[in-house]
Amino acid sequence: MSTATLAPSSRLSGLFAPARVQATVIQIATVVMFLLACVSIDNFASAANLSSILYAASTVGIAAVGLASVTISGNLFALSLGATAAFSSIVFIMASGLGVWPALAASLLLGVAFGALQGLVVGWLRCNAIISTIAAGSLIAGLATWVSDGRTVLAEGGPTWLGSGTIVPGVPWQAVLFAAIVIVGEVLMQRTRAGWELRLRGTNPDAAELAGLRVTRMVILSYVLAGAGAAIAGALIAAQSGTGNLRVGADLDFSAIAAMLVGGIAIGGGRGRIIDVASGTLFLAVLTNILLVNNFAYEVQLMVKGLAVLVAVTAGALLARKSR
C-alpha cells in the first residue's frame, strides 16, 4: 500500500476527527446550501446578490475573527464589540475627510486602545472577563455618545470605494479585506508561537502559567485583536452607508458569537481555527440571504436561523461523540 493511497483517507479521517467534525459539517453544509440555492432560487447567483452576502459576511466575520482569539484563549467572549464598532463608525466618518486609509487607521487605533485596556483589566488585574467587557462596552458607548452628541455623523462625500467598490462584479473590496484577515489570523494562530500560547492558555490556563508561557501578554493580545476586529467592522459598516452612529453594531456581539460557535470554535477555549470562523460566518450569511430573498416573514426567519444553528451544533456534538 502506497502512501499516496493512505494520505487521502488519513486526511479524511482528520476532517472527521472529534476536534474537527463540527467545523467540517458546517463547511459541507455551507457549500451544499449555496449550490442548492444557486440552482433553485432565481437571481441568487447574480453578482448583486453575491456581493450582498459578502458584505454581510465581511463585517460580522472580521469581528468574529477578532473575538475568536479571546474565546480560544479561554476567556469566553468580549461583550463590548457592538459599542466598539459604533464608536469606530463615528470616528471613521469624522476622519473620512482625510481619506479612507487615515480614517481606517484612526478607527483601528481606537479599537486597539480599548482592546488593550480590557486586556489589561482581564489579563493583568485578573478581573472577570464577562463583567469587565460589559463595563467596557458601557464606557465606550458613553464616550461615543459624548463625542457624537448621540447624532448620526454624515460623511461629506457619501460612501467610499471601501464601502461600495468591488474587485470584480460580486466580490466587494470588503470581502477581500475579510479574506486577508482570515489568512493572517489563521497563520498567526496555527503557525506562530503566540498562536500556540493562546491555544494552550485556553486549554489549561494553570498549566500554561506553570509552564512559563507568556499568559498575561497573550490575554492582552487577544483583546487587542478583538478590539481591532470590532473597530474594522464598524469602519466598514460606516464606509458602506457614509454614516456613523450609535446604532451601528447593535447586533454585532450576538452575530459574531453565533458565527464563531457555529463554525466550531470551542466555547471553553483551546480548540478551533480561524478558518472555522469564516465558515460559520458564511453559513449564517448564506442562510440569512436565502430567507430574505424568499421574503420569509421575520418570525419564520428567526425560527429557521435558530433551528439551523441548533442542528449544526447538535450534529457536531453527536458526530464528535460517535468518533470517539
Binding site: 432565481d42 437571481n43 448583486a48 450582498s52 440571504n289 430574505l292 430573498v293 421574503n295
Partner: peptide, 10 residues
C-alpha cells in the same frame, strides 16, 4: 441594506 437587497434580488 440587507433586507432591501434580498427583496431587490427576488
Amino acid at each position: 441594506t440587507q433586507a432591501a437587497a434580498g427583496l431587490f434580488t427576488k
